[in-house]
């Protein structure tokens, strides 16, 4: 456990604020890569996922894509794109690979959020004379939001993990301290970097967890069954119980 104390001392040592790669700079890079990649991926995947969820068309393709995506080794995709783009365009190549890795989760979150909605709610909207546009924005989007946030959450965590690995191709980020510590056999630095990465992932995960609870519309959360085991065989709940 002494190693942990050393690692924590390493994190808070004044030297971390100095040098060519300071810890706050590395954290900033890590967050910036993650944020940009997830936002770009969301701009592509959310409209697409909503279109699939609303029309029900192209579902099989989306299912196949998100299934196959799990088999893609993220490290391999990163290296492949870096080689294809050329060494001069490393950041661009890396961001493209992060975006590609983030899209399937967000896509799945967007369309399955719509699919989980009780068809009767949508039919009721239509019967009341809502236009398709109103059904989309006033029924489907709000009710599908918790699952969409869940998809964004998975995507963000995946990107945080891949940005860590991307230190291997000299992209910076907190993974730098781990990768650079290996040849130096500096286990204090390796562990210190790892703890920062873990803290980063946990904080982001926690933020999304809170957000996921906040976006559940009030009427829905009131009628939500809290325990899976207590639900009857035929589910009555409007949305799937959100991930905790």
């Amino acid at each position: 456990m002494n190693l942990f104390a050393d690692a924590i001392a390493w994190i808070f040592a004044p030297e971390r604020l100095e040098g060519s790669v300071s810890l706050p700079l590395a954290i900033g890079q890590h967050l910036a890569y993650t944020f940009v990649s997830v936002v770009v991926a969301a701009l592509v995947a959310v409209p697409l996922g909503w279109a699939i969820g609303h029309t029900g068309r192209g579902r099989e393709v989306a299912v196949a894509v998100s299934g196959a995506a799990r088999a893609v080794p993220s490290f391999g995709l990163l290296v492949l794109l870096v080689l294809i783009f050329g060494v001069l365009h490393k950041p661009e190549a890396a961001v493209v690979s992060f975006v590609l890795l983030a899209i399937p989760s967000i896509l799945a979150g967007a369309y399955s959020g719509f699919e989980a909605i009780d068809r009767r709610v949508i039919d009721a909207g239509r019967a009341m004379g809502m236009t398709e546009w109103q059904i989309l924005w006033r029924i489907e989007v709000p009710l599908g939001l918790p699952l969409l946030i869940g998809g964004l959450r998975s995507a963000t965590l995946q990107v945080v993990a891949t940005v860590t690995i991307a230190a291997y191709i000299n992209l910076g980020g907190v993974g730098y301290f781990i990768i650079q510590g290996v040849p130096l056999r500096d286990f204090t630095q390796i562990l210190g970097g790892a703890l920062v990465v873990v803290a980063l992932a946990l904080v982001l995960d926690g933020l999304f967890a809170v957000l996921q609870h906040l976006v559940v519309p009030r009427g829905v959360s009131a009628g939500r069954t809290p325990d899976v085991r207590a639900t009857p065989t035929r589910r009555r709940a409007v949305v799937e119980p959100a991930t905790e």
């Binding site: 860590t164 781990i178 562990l191 873990v198 992932a201």
Partner: peptide
């Protein structure tokens, strides 16, 4: 939630 490289280190 723990990224793989960090888990290898811990």
């Amino acid at each position: 939630t723990i990224p793989s490289l960090a888990l290898f280190a811990i």
